[in-house]
Each structure stands twice: as structure tokens, then as C-alpha cells.
């Protein structure tokens, strides 16, 4: 059992750095023509989703907190808060949807993850800006969430075999 514990710790560390690296690299991408300003594909959600389906509650939340801390260090307090709110909301949602219920496939989970992430960020901008007008942006964000969620979900589906190889199968397959 000790071996599994150490392996989980190592994989969590690996996934944490992967998600931070993905969210950092994402910042260099040019804004896509079909996306409104500020929208991002959310590739690090892939890591959080896989963590939710294979690692566990504390590990997934650790990845989310580490990512928010990184955003806080590199992009400031508001960005850190947005990352935290979006990450915690979508992390919990993924733990329920992928970890417990297991009804949706990767695509549906990706969409839900993106929606929750945007919802958390909208809440933070509502609090920091102090105007309910930010919710006027919600319909656009929801449509964007569907697009980016389908993309990240499809990538997750394709990446699962490789992730499994990476982490070993000692504590069960997702």
C-alpha cells in the first residue's frame, strides 16, 4: 500500500506541474477568431478532469489550488481569485460528475467543466467590479464553453490511455 501512496503523490506532483504549464502556455495562444476576448480553451481542465476520475478529492483540489496560486503570482490577485473560484467550482463539479455519477462521457464533462469555470470567474468579476452587468456576458460565455468543452473533452478521451501509462494501474483504471 505504501508504494501506491508514493506513486499517487508523484503523479499528483506531475499533474500539478502539467496543469500549470498548460495554463501558462495557453496564454501565448493568439485569441481565436471565433472566440470573444478573454476566452481561453482551458486545456488545464483536462488535467483536473483526469485527476477527478482517477486520483481523488484531495489530489484534485491540490492541483486546483496550486494552479490558482501560480496565477496569483504571475498575473496578480484578481486573476488568482478568478482561477481559484473557477477551478474550485469546476473541480468539485468534475469530482461529482466524473468521480461519482459517471453518467456523462468525456465531452459532456468537458462542457460542464468549462461552464463551471466560467461561472466562477463571472462571480469573481461580479464581486470585484460590483456590477450585475457582467452577467450580460453569460450567454456568450455559455456558447463558448460548449465549444471549448467539447474540444477539451475530446482531447481528454484521446489522452486517457497515455495518462494511464504515465501513472501506472496499481490503484485501478478509471
Amino acid at each position: 500500500m505504501k508504494g501506491v501512496k508514493i506513486q499517487k503523490l508523484t503523479v499528483t506532483a506531475l499533474f500539478t506541474s502539467l496543469s500549470v504549464a498548460l495554463s501558462f502556455v495557453e496564454g501565448f495562444l493568439p485569441t481565436f477568431a471565433f472566440l470573444p476576448p478573454g476566452a481561453k480553451p482551458g486545456f488545464s481542465n483536462i488535467i483536473v478532469m483526469f485527476s477527478a476520475m482517477s486520483l481523488g478529492v484531495s489530489q484534485t483540489l491540490f492541483i486546483v489550488f496550486a494552479k490558482a496560486f501560480f496565477a496569483f503570482l504571475t498575473r496578480g490577485a484578481v486573476a488568482g481569485l478568478m482561477s481559484l473560484a473557477g477551478g474550485v467550482l469546476s473541480g468539485i463539479c468534475m469530482l461529482i460528475v466524473l468521480g461519482k455519477l459517471k453518467m456523462t462521457g468525456c465531452v459532456g464533462a468537458g462542457v460542464l467543466s468549462a461552464v463551471c469555470h466560467n461561472l466562477g470567474q463571472l462571480l469573481v468579476s461580479f464581486i470585484t467590479v460590483g456590477s450585475s452587468a457582467v452577467f450580460g456576458y453569460a450567454p456568450v460565455l455559455l456558447v463558448v464553453s460548449v465549444v471549448t468543452g467539447v474540444i477539451t473533452g475530446a482531447i481528454l478521451r484521446a489522452a486517457i490511455p497515455y495518462f494511464n501509462k504515465l501513472r501506472g494501474t496499481e490503484w485501478g483504471m478509471p
Partner: peptide
């Protein structure tokens, strides 16, 4: 391993698009 798109996936996507349309 499940199919790429299940009926629950379609339900989720439809619901989200419907909410955005209503908003």
C-alpha cells in the same frame, strides 16, 4: 471505456445551449 458522445453528453450540451439562448 464509453463512447465519445453519450446521450448524457448531448443532454448537457443541449441544456447549456438552451440556457444561453434564454439568457
Amino acid at each position: 471505456m464509453k463512447k465519445l458522445v453519450t446521450k448524457w453528453d448531448i443532454a448537457v450540451i443541449t441544456a447549456v445551449l438552451l440556457i444561453s439562448l434564454l439568457l
